[in-house]
C-alpha cells in the first residue's frame, strides 16, 4: 500500500537529516521537527510582521493579530481573573501552536504534529506541571483544597475526595488524548475516503463515476476537520485556563 491509499502512512516519521548523536541520543531532524519549526515560524512571522507598522488604525492583517491577542486575554480574564494574566504568554503560545499545527496538518502531504501522542502528552504535562507547581508554590497546603469541595458533609467527603483525586489525575490524560485522538481520527477518516477515490479511479470509467461520492465526502470532511482543528485548539486552551484557575484559586 502506497502513501496515497494507506491511511496510516501519513503518520510516518521520516528522517530528513541527523545532527549525529550525543550520548546515544539521536538528534535526528525529522518531518515532525520540521513541521514544529514551520508552525513556530508562521506564528512568530505573522505576529511580528503584521504589527511592524504599529498602526494606530490597524490594517486587516494587524487586526487578526490584535483579535487573537484580545481573544486569549479575554478568555484568561474571564476564567481566572486578572491574576491569571501572568500566564498569558504561555496560554497564547499553546493556543497558536496547537491551532497552526492542527491546520497545517490538514494539508495533503503535510505532517500533523498534534497527531503524535508524545507531543500532546508533553503539552498536557507542561500545563499540569505548571498547575501543580504554581498551586503548591502559591498556596502551599491549601492547594489540596481542590480535592475537597466546600459545603459538603464529612460522610459524603469520604466518597467525594477519591473521585476528585481521580478526576484530577485523569486531567492530563484526557487533555492530551482529546487533542491526539481528534487529530488522528480526523486525519485517518479523511485519508480513508481519499483512498477510496484513488482505488476507485484505478477501476476505469465506472470507478471514476463512483469516485464522485467519496470525493464529495472528502471535501465535506476536510471542512469539518478545519472546524475541529480550531475547536480543539480552543478546547485545549480553555481547559488550560480552567486548570490554571484551580491553581490560582483552590477550593471551589
Amino acid at each position: 500500500m502506497g502513501y496515497a491509499t494507506n491511511p496510516i502512512k501519513q503518520f510516518d516519521i521520516i528522517e530528513i537529516f541527523s545532527f549525529g548523536s550525543i550520548n546515544g541520543f539521536d538528534l535526528v531532524f525529522t518531518n515532525s521537527a520540521l513541521m514544529m519549526l514551520v508552525s513556530v515560524a508562521i506564528i512568530s512571522g505573522w505576529l511580528i510582521l503584521t504589527t511592524r507598522g504599529r498602526g494606530l488604525v490597524p490594517s486587516r492583517l494587524q487586526l487578526v493579530s490584535e483579535i487573537t491577542y484580545g481573544f486569549i486575554a479575554n478568555m484568561i480574564r474571564t476564567s481566572t481573573g486578572s491574576e491569571g494574566m501572568k500566564f498569558f504568554p504561555l496560554v497564547f503560545s499553546l493556543f497558536t501552536f496547537i491551532l497552526v499545527s492542527n491546520i497545517l496538518g490538514l494539508y495533503p502531504y503535510f505532517f500533523s504534529v498534534s497527531s503524535q501522542l508524545i507531543v500532546t502528552v508533553a503539552l498536557a504535562l507542561l500545563v499540569m506541571g505548571i498547575v501543580i507547581f504554581y498551586g503548591v508554590w502559591k498556596n502551599g497546603f491549601k492547594f489540596l483544597k481542590i480535592f475537597v469541595p466546600s459545603g459538603i458533609p464529612l460522610v459524603v467527603l469520604i466518597i467525594v475526595v477519591p473521585i476528585e483525586v481521580l478526576s484530577f489525575l485523569s486531567r492530563p490524560l484526557s487533555l492530551s488524548l482529546r487533542l491526539f485522538g481528534n487529530m488522528l481520527a480526523g486525519a485517518i477518516v479523511v485519508k480513508v475516503f481519499a483512498g477510496f477515490v484513488v482505488s476507485l479511479t484505478a477501476m476505469g470509467l465506472i470507478g471514476i463515476i463512483g469516485a464522485i461520492l467519496p470525493l464529495a465526502m472528502t471535501v465535506a470532511l476536510t471542512g469539518l476537520e478545519f472546524l475541529v482543528a480550531a475547536l480543539q485548539a480552543f478546547v485545549f486552551t480553555i481547559l488550560t485556563c480552567v486548570y490554571l484557575n484551580d491553581a490560582i484559586h483552590p477550593g471551589h
Partner: peptide, 14 residues
Amino acid sequence: PQLFWLVISFGALY
C-alpha cells in the same frame, strides 16, 4: 527526538 524538537520549537515560540 520529537520531544527534543518540541522543547526547542515551543521554547522558542514562548
